[in-house]
């Protein structure tokens, strides 16, 4: 009898152990998630009772309120930009910093600093730097280049935010890549040297495949983080000028907290969720096979 009790205890114990974590996840992640999808089919302003409207919110998003499409386009553009520049810059920095010299050690620490600063402060500092009479334009004028209007022009507003995001993130991502660049056994590169592989070929055939798990990880996290960009936009441009730097999360935020259109906001959130899900699945399907795990 005692034996059996022990066995039941053994079966139950693991679930008891994960219960606190699951409970927190259920309350703060799963419930809001399902509630969001649920709400997206209602008209709801938190004051009057919610009213079922079916797909109307989605119809609104795609066919009536065209600023949603604009926000979506901007977000996609921003994400692509961040992925391309962030990953290539992080890779370049990682390769540059791989030799352990004291200069590199210092550079590495400085590069990591932006990561530990709050986006709020970073955004405010850049707002000041990117002012019409700010440091950026001062530098441009030194080289006799025309001043840019940075955040005040619909052509450069989103680009400016992209620059801030890359400046803030590149040190962190470079550090992740650096640790894996350093873990490539030097004999592999020597063997490639003996196999008469040129520098470029060694990079593309040995180094890059060896980094593929980290690059893949970067790709997914950067995609997700970029799709969720909010604070820099909120502070620096407020989505403007016009809606030239409006992004998905900021759109969701406005619909909910400025206009009290919680149903519409939930529908936009659901779209964001679907996009991220689909993107991640695509990544794993298409690229997952080419990733080499040790």
């Amino acid at each position: 009898m005692k034996h059996k009790q022990f066995r039941i205890g053994k079966l139950v114990l693991p679930y008891v152990m994960i219960l606190p974590a699951v409970a927190l996840l259920a309350v703060f992640t799963f419930y809001p998630l399902f509630n969001m999808v649920y709400l997206s089919f209602f008209k709801y302003d938190m004051l009057t009772p919610k009213k079922f409207v079916g797909w109307d919110n989605y119809y609104q998003l795609f066919f009536v309120n065209i600023d949603f499409i604009a926000a979506l386009k901007n977000t996609v553009f921003y994400t692509l930009g961040v992925i391309v520049f962030m990953i290539s810059l992080a890779l370049i920095f990682a390769l540059w910093l791989q030799r352990s010299t004291w200069v590199n050690a210092i550079v590495q620490r400085f590069m990591f600093l932006p990561h530990i600063c709050a986006m709020l402060t970073v955004a405010m500092v850049f707002q000041w730097l990117m002012d019409d009479r700010g440091l950026f334009n001062a530098v441009l004028s030194v080289f006799n280049l025309p001043a840019l209007r940075w955040l005040n022009s619909s052509h450069t507003a989103l680009l400016s935010i992209l620059i801030v995001a890359i400046w803030k993130g590149v040190g962190y991502y470079a550090l992740i890549l650096l640790s894996s660049v350093k873990s490539i056994p030097p004999e592999l590169l020597e063997a490639a040297d003996l196999d008469d592989a040129g520098k470029l070929r060694t990079f593309f055939k040995i180094t890059l495949p060896m980094l593929s798990p980290q690059l893949f990880f970067l790709l997914i996290t950067i995609t997700i983080n970029s799709f969720k960009v909010f604070d820099a936009v909120r502070i620096m441009t407020g989505g403007g000028p016009g809606n030239s730097s409006d992004v998905l999360v900021f759109y969701i935020y406005r619909q909910a907290f400025n206009y009290s259109k919680y149903g519409l906001s939930a529908a936009a959130g659901t779209i964001l969720l679907l996009i991220l899900l689909v993107m991640t699945v695509i990544y794993f399907r298409i690229l997952g096979k080419r990733v080499h795990y040790q």
Partner: peptide
């Protein structure tokens, strides 16, 4: 340069390219 010396080396830890197949490893040079 090492690749033009007409030599081949077997390393202590083999240093075979983990991302390539056996054939890829042999074929690389």
């Amino acid at each position: 340069p090492p690749g033009k010396r007409g030599i081949a080396m077997v390393f202590q830890n083999y240093a075979i390219y983990p991302t390539m197949t056996v054939k890829g490893n042999i074929e690389f040079g």
